[in-house]
């Protein structure tokens, strides 16, 4: 069954923008995978947007963007999400940033919940490095939703938190213990 369209509850762009010709660039992951993406999709990442702006300001041809801290598999997910949301108003994600009750549109819910938890963590981490507010919002909310109704052991399994006696004695925990 095809995923449903986004719910009307989520604010939508007021008017569809006239479709400008797509400007496609190559994006290279940390493990050497080369993907292609529309620049409008990449602009959802504040990090990549700054890089693109730097090229544009200097009138340099943008042939390839290197993303050194995201592997190919995760970068593909990031670009898929960005492609879906490239028409979104960035103010929507910013407005939702500090809201407790974020509504996750159905496409995003389907996209995020189908991922194994480890891949979801990688995706959120990539969204954090690339500074993609909307993806961080939905990803974190999806993680929290997955904990609903879970017992201690189920949550431990889900979040990959070992029992105290399973933790290595030479822990490298740094900031919170």
């Amino acid at each position: 069954m095809a995923p449903k369209k986004n719910s009307a509850k989520r604010p939508q762009p007021s008017t569809p923008k006239p479709s400008a010709p797509a400007r496609i660039v190559k994006v290279q992951s940390s493990d050497g995978h080369i993907l292609q993406a529309d620049v409008r999709a990449l602009l959802l990442s504040s990090t990549l947007a700054a890089t693109i702006k730097g090229y544009d300001d200097e009138n340099k041809p943008l042939e390839k963007l290197e993303v050194n801290n995201v592997v190919g598999f995760t970068l593909k997910l990031v670009l898929e999400w960005c492609e879906k949301h490239k028409e979104d108003d960035p103010a929507i994600a910013q407005a939702e940033k500090d809201k407790k009750n974020i509504f996750i549109p159905s496409w995003d819910r389907h996209f995020l919940t189908k991922l194994p938890m480890g891949n979801l963590f990688d995706l959120i981490t990539a969204a954090y490095h690339l500074d993609i507010t909307g993806l961080i919002n939905y990803g974190c909310k999806t993680v929290a939703n997955s904990a609903k109704g879970k017992s201690t052991e189920e949550m431990r399994e889900l979040f990959g938190i070992p029992e105290p006696w399973e933790q290595p004695s030479t822990s490298t925990a740094t900031w919170d213990d």
């Binding site: 938890m117 963590f121 959120i124 954090y128 974190c140 993680v143 939703n145 979040f159 990959g160 070992p162």
Partner: peptide, 25 residues
């Protein structure tokens, strides 16, 4: 059995980890 998922939530960057936890009931 040991937890199957060894990729831990606790290894997320601190900002997003706190955001995940802040969304819990």
């Amino acid at each position: 059995s040991e937890p199957k998922n060894r990729i831990s939530l606790l290894k997320l960057p601190r900002v997003v980890l706190l955001e995940c936890i802040a969304n819990l009931d």
